[in-house]
């Protein structure tokens, strides 16, 4: 049970990553690799601030801001310097690796004795429950710590998802969705496509960095390697989410990305429990995304027979 709760919590935290990837890959159709660096960037900035005893809320917001800047930089490289989108992301991601090492001063920064959002959630739950350590749910005994984290994650992700949804309903957010849909049209309506792309990538990487920041606080350390392969992870969640909700409405897709992230994390936890070698995880994730990207086309091609040449 605590395995499932832990997996769900991480799934929820990484749902913010999935939302960021949804924004860049699906709204803009922009393959943004910055994610691998900005996730760690959010974690490292938050971690070093927590070590310096900055209040957790501020440290977390700073993590978001760090990712926001990283994403904006990728957007600027792409739009103002005309560098290929993929390469822009790779450049920023690569640079961030060194930046993260500098920020943390070493490759791994533990947060065991620091006040974090995680300890804050735990304290709050403790106070509400009057000091009990375990809670009974459906006959299971669940650690209060685990439960408070899960509920905290639910609240946070719910709030961020809600804000993102609301943003997409504003004039600016609507223009952002249209930019991905038809840049020619939105430009003819007076919107700078460059500006919207920079803003969108900033927002996307801000969300990703927020995921990194929360993940570091949840697991109690930031590590310079923690972002590796996270793009694919987020993409897998988005794809699962799309399959789950089966529509193009963005409200559903936001919910879907969150559900996809949690489901994916649960599947991974179960697979690991059944003896999957953790070293194979990234390989399997990559293969999964490959299949998910290719399968729809393949199915379509198999269904519609190849047109025969006209008998003259």
């Amino acid at each position: 049970m605590s395995l499932l709760i832990g997996a769900s919590t991480i799934g929820l935290i990484l749902a913010l990553l999935a939302l960021g990837v949804y924004l860049s890959f699906r709204i803009f159709n922009f393959p943004d690799i910055t994610v691998d660096g900005s996730l760690t960037f959010g974690a490292s900035v938050t971690a070093i601030l927590l070590v310096r005893h900055v209040p957790p809320v501020l440290a977390t917001l700073a993590g978001f801001g760090a990712g926001f800047l990283a994403g904006a930089l990728t957007g600027i490289l792409h739009t103002k310097f005309k560098i290929h989108g993929l390469l822009s992301g790779i450049l920023v991601m690569t640079a961030l690796y060194s930046v993260n090492l500098h920020v943390m001063g070493k490759s791994n920064l533990p947060l065991l004795n620091e006040k974090t959002l995680a300890t804050a959630a735990e304290h709050l739950a403790m106070r509400l429950r009057g000091g009990e350590q375990d809670v009974g749910i459906l006959g299971w005994s669940v650690g209060l710590r685990d439960l408070s984290m899960l509920l905290g994650a639910v609240g946070l992700v719910g709030a961020v998802g809600g804000i993102l949804y609301a943003f997409f309903c504003t004039d600016l957010g609507t223009a952002m969705r249209a930019t991905g849909d038809n840049p020619q049209m939105i430009r003819a309506l007076g919107v700078s496509v460059d500006f919207i792309l920079i803003l969108g990538l900033a927002l996307s990487n801000g969300l990703v960095a927020l995921a990194g920041s929360l993940l570091a606080q949840y697991q109690g350390f930031a590590d310079v390697q923690m972002g590796i392969g996270m793009v694919v992870w987020g993409l897998a969640s988005v794809i699962i989410g799309e399959a789950l909700v089966g529509t193009q409405r963005f409200g559903f897709l936001i919910t879907g990305a969150v559900m996809g992230s949690v489901l994916f994390r649960l599947l991974v936890a179960i697979a690991l429990r059944w003896g999957l070698n953790p070293n194979d995880l990234k390989l399997i994730t990559a293969v999964f995304v490959f299949v998910a990207l290719v399968a729809p086309n393949l199915v379509r091609r198999l269904r519609s027979p190849v047109p025969k040449p006209n008998p003259a």
Partner: peptide, 28 residues
């Protein structure tokens, strides 16, 4: 070329109602 296909008729026209004007955080 002139419309955003996955967005609704109302959303498309709402964007056009702001042609050339600044776009902020008001409901579209």
């Amino acid at each position: 070329s002139g419309t955003a296909p996955t967005m609704s008729i109302a959303e498309n026209l709402a964007m056009a109602a702001l042609r050339g004007r600044p776009r902020g955080f008001g409901w579209a």
